[in-house]
Nucleic acid binder design. Structure first.
Lengths: 155, 155
DNA sequence: AAAATTAATAGAATATTTTTCTGTTAATTT
DNA sequence: AAATTAACAGAAAAATATTCTATTAATTTT
């Protein structure tokens, strides 16, 4: 049971909570035409089944001076299992790396990195990222503008 | 005043809330060695200054059957202002598109898209994305594995 | 199809948490 | 050094979440 069945009310609830999880059960109950108890129990159920993985605060990258975003494409020298997991563990430990995906295509990994500015990125690249073993090449693509960033999985 | 000055306590608070925003002020006050009032006032200040942009529920992509993630690189035919904003508005309206960035390099935009499976992606591509005007080319890169996905901007 | 069981819901009571209030201390400015 | 402002703590009040009890709807079993 990897996936979970969701009725329309669950979907509405998830959309609402993905947009703003600080809404009171009262507010949600009005939106869904349910009692606060029903809303509460549905939320608890979604938490227990793992559909809701957690609740987080969204921080403005500009105000905390972390608005220099880079997509870094990485090729590895070899593709042995041990090597991949070694790379993946090392990358996961870097706080500047917000996201890392193993992908299909011309390169092996896509990383999303957020730092202060170009100089901070240079330091990160030279002193942290490229010290990881077996990287064949890196290719940096710089964010010019953020058009859309959403956390809402629609149904 | 685009950026906001943050002391060590603010930074600790933000790290904690970016990890789990459902922690009670009591829990946070113990972690920061502060009173609940002090924690509360700091949070309100961070909200008002826009450092905290919001609070959202994180939904498990696997359980809601939206775990087919694609990075789509897009080139436009021209680069006139009106054309860019037209494209950006159209893309922003698509719920499958979680993220869209205008970027430097060989192509103009990077999109992150989450759908059910390859067939859903094909439909999205043919029926939605490529109906937008002035797209010169698209190039899809498929997620093989998610190594890291974090919402925590570290200090 | 009827009875039994389970799941979902509502309203009220309780527990918890947030928010406000008052006063105090620390830091900054004049 | 005095005055002002900002940050903080403890207690009180307000709001919210959670639990409890009962009812209804849906499903399963006989």
């Amino acid at each position: 049971m990897e996936t979970v069945k969701l009725d329309t009310l669950d979907q509405k609830l998830l959309t609402a909570l993905q947009t703003d999880c600080r809404q009171t059960t009262k507010m949600l109950s009005l939106k869904l035409n349910l009692s606060t108890t029903a809303v509460h129990e549905r939320i608890k159920k979604l938490e227990k089944s793992g559909v809701i993985a957690g609740y987080v605060a969204i921080v403005d990258q500009v105000r905390v001076d972390k608005n220099f975003v880079v997509f870094c494409h990485i090729k590895l020298q070899q593709h042995k299992q041990a090597l991949l997991t070694g790379f993946e563990q090392a990358v996961s430990l870097l706080p500047e790396v917000l996201e890392c995906y193993h992908v299909s295509g011309d390169y092996d990994y896509i990383l999303k990195i957020a730092v202060r500015d170009m100089e901070a990125y240079r330091k990160f690249l030279v002193e942290k990222l490229t010290t990881i073993d077996y990287i064949a090449s890196t290719h940096s693509i710089f964010k010019i503008n953020e058009v859309k960033r959403s956390h809402v999985l629609a149904f």
